[in-house]
Design a protein around this nucleic acid. Structure first.
Lengths: 217, 217
DNA sequence: TGTACATCAGTGAACGCGCGTTCACTGATGTAC
DNA sequence: TGTACATCAGTGAACGCGCGTTCACTGATGTAC
């Protein structure tokens, strides 16, 4: 029954990955260790060769979920046309595809209202993940008001969580579409009427704003 | 052991009220029927004289939570100075007090990321509650862009849920403060540059906007 | 390189626990006369 | 109004179930010689 070191390491990696998907899709409390191990084609007993407790798995799975989602967001940003990165990120984050594939998406909307009752280690990982999303928005909208950036992050997370929670597909779509449209426009605006401000590419902010307010498909 | 009809009705009412508070505070899955009955000073057995199942209690408690929170919001709006109602609602919704008293607050941020896994009856009650909050915002910001109103509702809910979830009190406060500041300003702005539009009070929108952008304490 | 032994990844049954739900029972309330 | 009986709100123990965790066991892997 013993497996090679490589196989064992692979088991551990797959357990964390599978857990991170199941937790995002169904919530931490609704997914048992048995569910995770069954998804690997294994029985529960083997779990404790790899993890000290369920809490340890949750903490690792949460970190993994943020790492994966962060990588996805980075690639969306990287492959966008110049000046279109913010619009591309909003288009992806507030898409039906993201709404309908929670398992591989951003863990924040999936966990936001249950993480308050989780142990501190998990809350810390979550908080770091929120800061990371905020950092992305700050980087992509350096000229926007700081208040607008925080409000935008709250709105992205709220809209996606609501789009998944609500029973009515038209309302769900409106949360995604309207929040995306609003913030694509609003984050393009410059901070305040300072004389002739320019971004790091030397473009005038009005040019950036115009790019970012093109109508979405 | 039998109680009078009035006492029995009171037991039922109190059970729904207590459950609605516990569910908002700790989440539906973390609160057992035993917890609710113990809070009434009763044992679990009596529960089924009043409710068919836990799901039935959850549905009623959820409806009750929305009714209570709606009444609170109505009274905030009603007691605000004319033209200040929207600012007052945002100030109350995105306050530390609301963040720290989930049990008596709006159920949407408490339940938003777990309601997707609940039965349809509960999702419907939740959806109606979301529509109700959106209706309040539409009434208080009739001149704002429709996209802005949806985005504002998503932002209010996201910001409060994040403020509770996050491990860092400074970041928590920023979500509340910045989201409140942003939307108090943004929802005061008029829809689009139409010639001389006036609201139902005959005031010019610019006047309303100026009122609603006064700095918050 | 081959052999003997220790290691340990995974099995599958068992553990105690809390859950939602059921049920025989109690005794005060409500009702029929 | 008073009495006899039926009703039923609440008790407390029991039920089956799934959970997280433990453990004796298995047998292939890893290692020492």
């Amino acid at each position: 029954m013993r497996r090679s070191r490589e196989e064992a390491a692979e088991t551990r990696r797959t357990a964390v990955e599978t857990a991170s998907k199941l937790y995002r899709e169904r919530g931490v409390d609704s997914v048992s260790i048995g569910d995770v191990m069954a998804a690997l084609g294994m029985t529960v007993g083997g779990f404790y060769r790899h993890f000290e407790s369920k809490e340890a798995l949750v903490a690792e799975a949460c970190a993994r979920a943020f790492a994966d989602a962060g990588r996805t967001e980075d690639s969306v940003v990287a492959s966008a046309d110049d000046g279109e990165a913010l619009a591309a990120l909003l288009r992806r984050y507030l898409s039906r595809a993201h709404r309908d594939t929670a398992a591989s998406g951003c863990p924040i909307p999936s966990l936001v209202s249950s993480v308050a009752h989780q142990p501190g280690s998990i809350r810390s990982t979550f908080t770091e993940g929120v800061r990371s999303l905020l950092g992305r928005i700050e980087k992509l909208a350096p000229e926007a008001e700081p208040e607008a950036r925080l409000a935008a992050v709250a709105g992205m997370i709220g809209a996606l969580a609501l789009a998944r929670a609500v029973n009515d597909e038209r309302l769900s779509d409106r949360f995604l579409h309207d929040t995306r449209t609003f913030w694509t426009r609003a984050l393009g605006k410059r901070r305040s009427p300072t004389p002739n401000p320019r971004d790091k590419h030397g473009r005038h902010p009005a040019t950036r704003a115009r790019h970012q307010t093109e109508p979405l498909p």
